[in-house]
Nucleic acid binder design. Sequence first.
DNA 1: TACGTAATTTATAATTATTCTAAAATAGAG
DNA 2: CTCTATTTTAGAATAATTATAAATTACGTA
Lengths: 138, 138
Amino acid sequence: MKQLEFHKERLRTFGLRPTKQRLDICRILFDRKNTFHFTIEKLKKIIEKNNKKKISLATLYNTIHVLKKKGYLKEISLKGNKTFFDTNTKKHHHFYDEGMSQLIDIDDKNISLNYLPKIPNGKKIKSIEVLVKIEKTN
Amino acid sequence: MKQLEFHKERLRTFGLRPTKQRLDICRILFDRKNTFHFTIEKLKKIIEKNNKKKISLATLYNTIHVLKKKGYLKEISLKGNKTFFDTNTKKHHHFYDEGMSQLIDIDDKNISLNYLPKIPNGKKIKSIEVLVKIEKTN
DNA sequence: TACGTAATTTATAATTATTCTAAAATAGAG
DNA sequence: CTCTATTTTAGAATAATTATAAATTACGTA
């Protein structure tokens, strides 16, 4: 299975051993067609159901943070206590249904900003994120 | 002082007694020209310095949440653990300097979205928030 | 003004998300 | 197969927030 080798390579390239746990995480995160939005708790449940075997929270936090630092994951700006991550690392935006805690990606091409205000002195733009909150039509 | 009466009225109108603590909070939040962005801890420090007297965290959380529920405060969507509040309740956006944890309001008039993608079925837009992250030019 | 009662404040405990720690397990080179 | 550095793990530590329940306060009424 090619994917597995790819994940191993990905991990090795930045000096991480491709352990069973890390590969389990990579499989869940990256072996899929579409973007995956998740919290650590949600990821833990999925992996444990898949493997019928516990995985430590510390391992999840460690691995997710490394993957994020290396640019394979994005953290999403949302209010609330839980941290959301996103496997889509391209420039993009989100629909967010607060009621359902559900995120949907919006391609950067599908949003465009007409005019932006003056950027404060001595500062430059690092990123622009648009969050479109949606709710049920009643 | 008019402001004080105004705060008392504001509190009374939704059945809250205008206590010393609540008025202290209102003074810090609303007796100012510009928007105020804050975390609970920051607000606590300001009030305690002003009054040379401690105020309980529980009181701050209670009051801030009531003010938010009643529409006098907005919670800001940011990543990270601490929750930020904003006295600007109008539709608007933000510059955010992550390094300095500093927020600057952007008037809604100063940003405009050219085109938006299709909204998912059965959903309608509740709000649109733009976050422009900025950093030092080096 | 004083009283009684319900609302409020408070310190502290409980809860939740996350990070830290150090002992046990594992990967991989030789 | 052995050795050692890396990794996993359970559980402790920390941090933000919420809940609890006793002490205090606001304020209508006498």
